[in-house]
Amino acid sequence: MTIEEILQTRVRATRRATSIPLIVVPIGVILVALSPLVDLDFEVGMVVTPVVALALWISMKVTAVRAGVGMGRERYGLIVIVIALVSTVWLIQLALGPAFLLGVLLFFVGWRSLDRGQWTAGAIIAVASPVLSYSLIQTLVYRIEEALTGAVWETAMAADDVVLLLLGVFFLVSGLKRFGRESATLRRRSS
């Protein structure tokens, strides 16, 4: 590692630039996945997406200002505004699922900050959202249940929601691991 790369790593660790997006967005995905428990449908994306986008910007801003650095060159503000505006288009939420724009948000944040882990996670969520929003897995589960027992067991959460929940939890854990690595980098710097 060159001294310039070490400095870049330190600054990114100080800004928590590698962990915060991968913590905040998966929390949004988990909320979306759990929304059927409170009887919310695709419209949950119209609330959760702008709130998560705003929470991401605020957490990045507060972390940066407290540490004495700027927001970097990623232009998170612009991405947040665009995603928050697009999230009000109900047709997108209906056709592509409420987690789609959360995936797009993470994809663009990761793409702007050249973070492969972030944009890969964003792409996976964005692709999974439309696939999981048509209850295809749940339909399959019903068919198997009916064939085996002659009846179906209805639950508030569909199997597709559980898959989305597991995706959210998986990425949240990877975000928390990154947070730990950033803390280790900052500890090395101060020791």
Binding site: Q8, V11, G70
Partner: peptide, 25 residues
Amino acid sequence: RTRLGIMTVLYEAGEADFAFLKSTL
């Protein structure tokens, strides 16, 4: 060397305050 370090930090951070630059470098 030091000025290249300052420029590198500023490029990555967008901006930085005096105290952060002092402690980082």
